[in-house]
């Protein structure tokens, strides 16, 4: 028995998330009072973690953030005005079960789709932003995601303010077939028009940014940033491993990997994000006459 106990002890250690649910927690705090960091395995108060913009207090691991948390942490308080919040997907291919899946995710997330768009200020600078949310259909891009992002870009164009996008997506929305593929083109042509008018585009890639989203607006910023440790890539890791028949390095398709291969301007910690983006907005000078002093 003693020997067996030794092994059981090791197995317990492998558990990824340890939460201590109390009666109150079961009702009010679904994630529990305590959260264990999947990276450094240390346990901390969920409230403290949230206060620290969901960055581990010990190792700075970035926990996934949903769109509402992102707005609260990034946009100046009280300045956010949502755009097109009532837009929802149809079922253009009559795909079996698609409408039910959408409805289930609407219930689960209290979001209408996988992106929130709106106008707000950051460090006092007016911007238009689009924030993708991977809790809704894995952040996949269908007609609504493409349309809302395009409308947001057009709004930024109309107001002549910078466009800032936070990406988080598993790629195309399979259930909308080629229509979802065409959203890549739609958003890209809108960015080109905005860019031709001198618009500033900032892309902040968060975990995960893959497939059609990484191969369109996520990569088209004047500045392309990523959060530490975010998975970013075009093809899935397993698909690549199967096609090249070799094991990929541990850091493959991470933000750090992309930075090393020249695909990013910088990796920005969430703790510094507002400050760094405010700096860029401060330096940014809209097209026109160069003014100095």
């Amino acid at each position: 028995m003693a020997l067996k106990d030794l092994f059981t002890k090791n197995q317990v250690k492998k558990k990824k998330y340890a939460t201590i649910p109390t009666e109150a927690a079961k009702n009010d705090v679904p994630e529990g009072i305590m959260t264990k960091c999947p990276s450094c395995k240390k346990i901390m108060y969920t409230k403290e973690l949230s206060k620290n913009v969901k960055v581990c207090l010990h190792c700075e691991h970035h926990f996934p953030m949903n769109s509402k948390e992102r707005i609260a942490s990034f946009i100046d308080e009280g300045s956010f005005q949502e755009l097109n919040e009532n837009m929802i997907s149809g079922n253009p291919l009559q795909f079996p079960g698609y409408l039910e899946k959408l409805e289930a995710d609407r219930q689960k997330t209290s979001l209408n789709e996988a992106v929130i768009t709106g106008i707000g200020t950051v460090g006092g600078h007016k911007i238009v932003t689009a924030i993708m949310d991977s809790t809704f259909r894995m952040g996949s891009m269908g007609s609504v995601v493409g349309e809302k992002i395009t409308l947001a870009i057009e709004k930024a164009d109309e107001l002549s303010v910078p466009f800032i996008i936070f990406t988080a997506s598993g790629g195309a929305r399979m259930q909308e077939g080629a229509l979802s593929l065409m959203q890549m083109a739609k958003t890209s042509v809108a960015l080109k028009k905005f860019s031709n008018h001198g618009g500033l585009i900032i892309s902040i890639m968060t975990h995960p940014t893959t497939g059609g989203v990484s191969a369109s607006f996520a990569s088209l910023g004047d500045f392309n940033f990523a959060e530490p440790g975010a998975l970013i890539g075009f093809a899935g890791r397993r698909v690549i491993e199967q096609s090249i028949r070799e094991k990929l390095p541990e850091d493959f398709q991470t933000a750090e990997f992309l930075l090393k291969h020249g695909q990013l301007d910088a990796i920005i910690s969430r703790l510094d994000l507002v400050e760094k983006i405010t700096d860029i907005l401060d330096i940014h000078q809209p097209r026109g006459e160069i003014t100095w002093q």
């Binding site: 890549m184 083109a185 890209s188 042509v189 960015l191 080109k192 028009k193 860019s195 031709n196 990484s214 191969a215 369109s216 607006f217 996520a218 990569s219 088209l220 970013i232 890539g233 075009f234 093809a235 899935g236 698909v239 690549i240 096609s243 090249i244 070799e246 990929l248 493959f252 398709q253 291969h261 020249g262 695909q263």
Partner: peptide, 26 residues
């Protein structure tokens, strides 16, 4: 489809595709 390979990712498959969509628009 675009080739799903290690070298393709290292050299920015996503960026290359995105850039074409963007530039073709103009």
């Amino acid at each position: 489809g675009a080739y799903p390979g290690k070298a393709a990712e290292e050299r920015g498959q996503s960026e290359a595709i995105a850039r074409n969509l963007f530039e073709m628009a103009g």
